[in-house]
Amino acid sequence: MAAVSLESQHDAPRIAGDGVPESAWRRSAWLAALPAQSASDWLAGVARLVIVSPHPDDEALGCGGLIATACAIGLPVRVVSVTDGEACYPDSPVWPAQRLRIVRRRELECALAILGVEIDGIDTLDIGDGRVSERESALVRALAPVLHTGDRVLTTWRGDGHPDHEATARAVERAAAERGARVVQFPVWAWHWLSPDVPVSPLPGAQRLVLTPAACRAKAAALGCFVSQLHDDRPGMPAPILPPHVLERFDRDFEVVLP
């Protein structure tokens, strides 16, 4: 996950303020009514799971439990980090882009190790945080040698409300079509702005993948690795990208995916 800059607010006007609290999602009738399946059953028959994440932490937020489940059952997993999330604090002297690039790669490696992904299962593309939409074709070309026919490829939702997330989804769809891989998407920012009270699900075809307690614990521990994104009350530190009320949305015993 990365902040949406003021310059890109016209692209993602729904991402503002504190967003929808998790307490409202716990009362959501349409979310509770989504078809449910265990994460392990959903992975049955999959040859390899590939996760294409716009920023370091999106993979853990959106499908960290699924990654942990796949690794636990011995399924090959590859994670592609499209950007290094280096622009998440553009006005902070504490977090210049070059420092963030190094720190966030280390955080990603720490988180994925907890989930079960070895360092040689990680690709970092450095497409440019906040620039994915202008470099979509380059991303498609970069993904082509990574994806294989028959892969199940997870990425952020095409309607997630963040320009990098949506551009990544479009590029993944193009690359996967060329390589004969199946794409499945997961919401991240959408939990910030979707309505929990509408009568019909705004996520057509979505389903809940139920996680084991062990997968939930691994996901929580992995998210704890992204220290640069968490609350820091030292003087001069910027507002965190993942404050407690945001992390609450991902402290569930299920994850949501959609075609």
Results as ranks from 00 to 15, higher is better:
238 P>I: 02
155 T>I: 06
75 L>P: 07
58 D>P: 09
202 P>F: 13
116 G>C: 09
99 R>N: 03
63 C>T: 12
98 Q>F: 01
218 A>P: 06
246 V>L: 06
219 K>R: 15
138 A>E: 13
23 S>C: 02
114 I>P: 01
92 S>L: 02
64 G>I: 06
88 C>Y: 08
9 Q>A: 12
215 A>N: 12
131 R>Q: 14
246 V>N: 02
77 V>T: 05
213 P>Q: 06
130 G>D: 01
215 A>L: 15
180 G>L: 07
122 I>R: 04
44 A>Y: 10
162 H>V: 14
49 L>F: 13
33 A>C: 10
49 L>W: 07
89 Y>I: 05
241 I>A: 04
238 P>E: 02
107 E>W: 14
59 E>D: 14
90 P>V: 11
138 A>S: 06
2 A>S: 15
110 C>D: 15
131 R>H: 14
186 F>Y: 15
233 D>A: 12
87 A>L: 09
150 G>A: 08
60 A>N: 04
76 P>F: 00
121 G>H: 00
54 P>C: 09
255 E>Q: 14
102 I>C: 10
108 L>P: 05
121 G>K: 05
253 D>Q: 07
170 R>Q: 09
113 A>R: 14
198 V>N: 14
139 L>H: 00
72 A>S: 14
3 A>Q: 08
31 L>R: 08
55 H>R: 13
120 D>Q: 12
182 R>A: 12
20 V>S: 13
33 A>Y: 01
103 V>A: 13
257 V>G: 01
68 A>V: 11
56 P>N: 13
88 C>I: 10
35 P>T: 04
203 L>Q: 03
173 E>K: 13
203 L>C: 00
209 L>H: 04
51 I>N: 06
255 E>A: 08
192 H>I: 13
238 P>D: 06
179 R>E: 02
200 V>L: 09
93 P>Q: 01
24 A>I: 03
47 A>C: 08
32 A>W: 00
248 E>R: 10
55 H>G: 09
116 G>F: 01
74 G>Y: 11
94 V>A: 13
138 A>T: 00
212 T>Q: 13
179 R>F: 09
60 A>P: 04
150 G>D: 12
29 A>Q: 14
61 L>Y: 09
234 R>Y: 02
183 V>L: 12
